[in-house]
Design a protein around this nucleic acid. Structure first.
Lengths: 255, 255
DNA sequence: CGACTAGTTGAGGCCAGTCAATGTTGGTGG
DNA sequence: CCACCAACATTGACTGGCCTCAACTAGTCG
């Protein structure tokens, strides 16, 4: 609620150096992520106008940064390929993962309010982003009501997502948090047409721990225990969910 | 990240019963909270149009509910008088406070994405809310760019606020969390023209604990300790901050 | 191959939770 | 106005879940 967001304007250098800008047009019209992304439900005419707006893509290698705290906010980014994490930093340098993002996710939304980013986005693997210049997006939203509404929905869902995470961090035990994490990943992979029971984690134990407010050793121990109990099969970053309903029960959720 | 937001539509009864609807026009034009609230920076003409939209207010007594999880989403609410908390519920009934809100705050934003509320808003004292019908607000936003932008900023700031809270919940120790809580309240009281060093808490120890992911006994002990250390003076819900900079240092510090 | 990063596992400690007893406050009705 | 009660708050003693520290293994890459 406090610290990182109200910082004075950019002290940090802009991060354009590490990214490759592609002047290719990235047609929403033909994008496979269209129905998961901001253009969801738009008609052909609206899609064409949105295409006009998305003139650049950014490509990041694993570990590279899309934006940092303090960078001027100018655009939202739609994740087109690969995956990334967003992290927030405390004043003393402590860092916490605030989200893991995959295809169709829109990131950077925390920058609108302050005019500069309060968080950081780092690629977990080689990845690609459509740049949505925010001024133009607002302009276009004023003429295309469904686009405007989609934007509002994306902003709102980010809030809901954060609420769930806050609930996990504030009132769940370690094993419940990890179960929630796995079930959530599972659902999102399914939505994107991937296997919901077998996937490869893109992040380290430490990053998972950071996201869940746990230490890496705790995460590791829990993976081992879940495996022992027959809930999952885990081998490094490869995970197979053997008993999804048991995992869901762990969080108090009825399937 | 998971549980409460993706529920099926309303099972819960609508909450209109407990609230008093006032058909009074609540003029943004003359509202003292104007510069903290959604109309911030709007010109006279825009203000007048916004006035047209805000046709009703809701008045709640302490403990009454503005909306519940599952209630159909139709409007945002601008807090005009008093204060309230918003809470999120896990499936097993566990409840966690997600935010404390005061004059000028806009609440209900988590409902846009799903079409129904995922959280609950409960009055901490007798309070009053301007009802902002969301469809109409979107419409108006399409003709008044600054209003549209303000809405986006409010949505975005809610995200930033959540990020800070996540950071607290995930990586701070109990004393740091409470210090952060007090400093944050202090800042918000100042912004609203109240004393930033002397105020009365509107919530119980248990509610503070719920917000910070702590138990009420822990909160109580910390208040006592802070007092012993000369950081604050506390008497029930009355708090005086004696050493704000020491409190701020507590959040920056890694022990 | 060595250096490095990531992951696993064990031992022990500490912070915050739990349980319990007691004190305080504020609202209500006699 | 005061007595009463219930809700809220404080404090102590003890427990336990997660953290810390540490040793070791597995996999990767120059």
């Amino acid at each position: 609620m406090i610290i990182p967001s109200r910082k004075p304007p950019p002290a940090t250098p802009q991060t354009a150096a590490v990214v490759s800008i592609l002047a290719l047009k990235s047609h929403c019209t033909s994008c496979t992520m269209r129905e998961l992304c901001l253009p969801v439900g738009l008609d052909r005419d609206a899609l064409r106008q949105l295409d006009e707006l998305v003139t650049t893509r950014v490509r990041l290698k694993k570990g590279e940064t899309l934006y940092r705290p303090g960078d001027a906010f100018s655009a939202l980014y739609a994740l087109r390929l690969g995956s990334c994490k967003t992290t927030v930093l405390a004043e003393d340098g402590r860092e916490q993962v605030a989200g893991y993002h995959m295809l169709g996710d829109v990131i950077g939304m925390d920058g609108i309010g302050a005019g500069y980013h309060g968080s950081q986005a780092v690629a977990l693997e080689d990845s690609e982003y459509c740049v949505l210049p925010f001024d133009e997006l607002e302009n276009l939203g004023r003429s295309i009501a469904p686009l405007q509404h989609n934007l509002h929905q994306f902003l709102s869902r980010e809030i809901s997502r954060n609420h769930s995470l806050m609930l996990q961090l504030g009132s769940m035990r370690a094993e419940e948090r990890l179960a929630a994490f796995l079930v959530n990943l599972s659902q999102r992979y399914r939505e994107r047409g991937y296997s919901s029971i077998e996937f490869v984690l893109r992040m380290t134990r430490e990053e998972i721990g950071s996201y869940l407010g746990l230490k890496l050793e705790t995460v590791s121990r829990l993976f081992s225990r879940f495996q022992q109990e027959g809930l999952i099969q885990v081998q490094g970053r490869s995970v197979i969910l053997l008993d999804v309903s048991a995992l869901k029960q762990l969080l108090g959720q009825r399937c």
